[in-house]
Design a protein around this nucleic acid. Structure first.
Length: 263
DNA sequence: TGTGATGTTGAATG
DNA sequence: GCATTCAACATCAC
């Protein structure tokens, strides 16, 4: 379930679990999850290393080794990490696991295998190579305004493009549009400047709040769209009906009659 | 049984 | 080169 707030929660969990523990070995169950080398090479590279830091940018989490190298953990749609001791507690779809000297394990669980793990000797070069945008919570309003200028794509498509800003995913994009009463398919350049600024502020407010709450979803305000997502046909009092459509290639929920496309 | 799922990539198009 | 769209990836749950 990994958008920026979720990955931020993973980062906290990762730090707690992995920092300052020497890796005794790495067991790779599925070579394909490691994207830039084979499993054995990855395992050898990690052996006897220690995680001493971590860096999150959008949905990308980078663990930093004591030799300055990094391991990218990208969770895809279904990635998760689990810290455990007994080998029989291995998550069902574990693709690889760090085994620490004290016997504890940090496993990467990922049923759909959309996760991506890379061993990186040059973090900055990698970020440049994939043109990853600035983190959505770090980005300034001025920079956001420069990015959105002239963009014809839907506001949702713009927010989802990780090359512009990193971290907004499908559900939080819909959440932002709902709270601002903006139709997610509205072309970005048809929003007024005030609306564009409002999108930026609301997006940061939502992402920042969610990141603080997680992993406890119960802390989300009851008036968030979160609880209504997928509730197609539901009437929202004083607003309209929840409907589903495709925007930017993704399943999109919005409230018909409340979020209206400009004519 | 078929459908779709909180993401990214690479090819294709403009 | 940039902006944008879209199928493909692999598995599971409803």
């Amino acid at each position: 379930m990994p958008e920026l707030p979720e990955v931020n929660a993973y980062k906290v969990y990762f730090n707690e679990a992995a920092f300052n523990q020497k890796i005794e070995r790495v067991i790779v169950h599925d070579d394909k999850i490691i994207r830039n080398m084979d499993g054995n090479t990855f395992a050898e590279a990690c052996k006897n290393r220690t995680f001493v830091g971590s860096y999150r940018r959008g949905k990308y989490l980078f663990g930093e080794f004591d030799n300055g190298d990094h391991v990218l953990l990208h969770f895809g749609m279904t990635g998760d990490i689990k810290y455990y001791s007994a080998p029989e507690d291995k998550p069902k779809h574990e693709r690889f696991v760090f085994v620490f000297e004290n016997g504890m394990r940090l496993g990467f669980d990922d049923p759909r295998k959309f996760g991506r793990i890379l061993y990186l000797t040059d973090l900055q070069a990698y970020i440049k190579e994939i043109k990853l945008g600035e983190d959505a919570l770090v980005l300034s309003e001025d920079a956001f305004m420069r990015l959105i200028k002239g963009k014809k794509a839907s506001i949702k498509g713009f927010l989802l493009n990780q090359k512009f800003l990193a971290g907004v995913g499908n559900l939080y994009a819909d959440e932002t549009c709902y709270q601002l009463q903006i139709h997610p398919a509205t072309p970005s350049n048809q929003l007024t400047e005030e609306q564009q600024r409002a999108v930026f502020r609301k997006m940061q407010e939502i992402m920042g709040f969610a990141a603080e709450q997680l992993p406890n979803y119960k802390g989300y305000p009851p008036n968030w769209f979160w609880n209504l997502w997928r509730e197609v046909g539901k009437e929202i009092e004083g607003k309209g009906t929840v409907v589903s459509c495709k925007v930017a290639g993704r399943t999109t929920m919005f409230v018909e009659g409340w979020q209206v496309l400009p004519t």
